[in-house]
Amino acid sequence: MSEQTVIEARDLGLTFETNSGPIHALKDVNLTIEKGDFVSFIGPSGCGKTTFLRVVADLEQPTAGEITVNGMTPAQAREARAYGYVFQAAGLYPWRNIERNVKLPLEIMKMDRAEQDRRVSEVLELVDLKGFEKSFPWQLSGGMQQRASIARALAFDADLLLMDEPFGALDEIVRDHLNEQLIALWKRTGKTIGFVTHSIPEAVYLSTRIVVMSPRPGRITDIIESPLPAERPLDIRDSREFIEVAHRVREGLREGMSDVA
């Protein structure tokens, strides 16, 4: 394990006990994520991609194997505020305006006021929401709300960003736009990003590595290193490399399904 390793999973497993028998949400998952990686997790529902992210975030407890985040246990990493988490829905508090929503984690981490203000204006700049500080979430569009929730995750400047289908509920046009912005943000900040999605183009467009997963039991079937250059305009999606990677992802997904069927 090098200095650069952010997430390291060894034979990781998680089994839920339910009334209709045990469910193997994760089985024998081995994965290393290096600093600065943009790693996408893709697969059909039930493949454990969200569960893996939740284990990293200490929202679920693994039942087998080991996992470290920045060399610590997930619980220690959480207490050290090592990561920011973005959920499927924006989940902004309707009783706080955008500015105070972004401030929420900073208040909990008891930063001083001036520092809070500085960071809020910085991250709102970053997600292109300047001028909406005093608006309430319900006054904004879905895409803007999701950008505010990304700003909230960025506000305390953790090196690791965990995103669970953050754009799943948005329409394709807004989604393209946010994907572009996310790439720009990643390049500018050099953060490590774990990104769950079920859209092949989204995964291929964003990632440096694509982790293909399949269900029952949830496991990794393929890990694809992206050959795409760091500079990625939207029309790269029409290039040959892009289509080849997308094809390989699709093949991986199909293989995972055929085991089951």
Partner: peptide, 20 residues
């Protein structure tokens, strides 16, 4: 989801009571 969010901030019991 909002409780999970508080958890990821490792907010204390009273913090999540007062803020959420």
């Amino acid at each position: 989801m909002q409780r999970d969010l508080m958890h990821t901030y490792s907010a204390s019991y009273w913090q999540s009571l007062a803020k959420l």
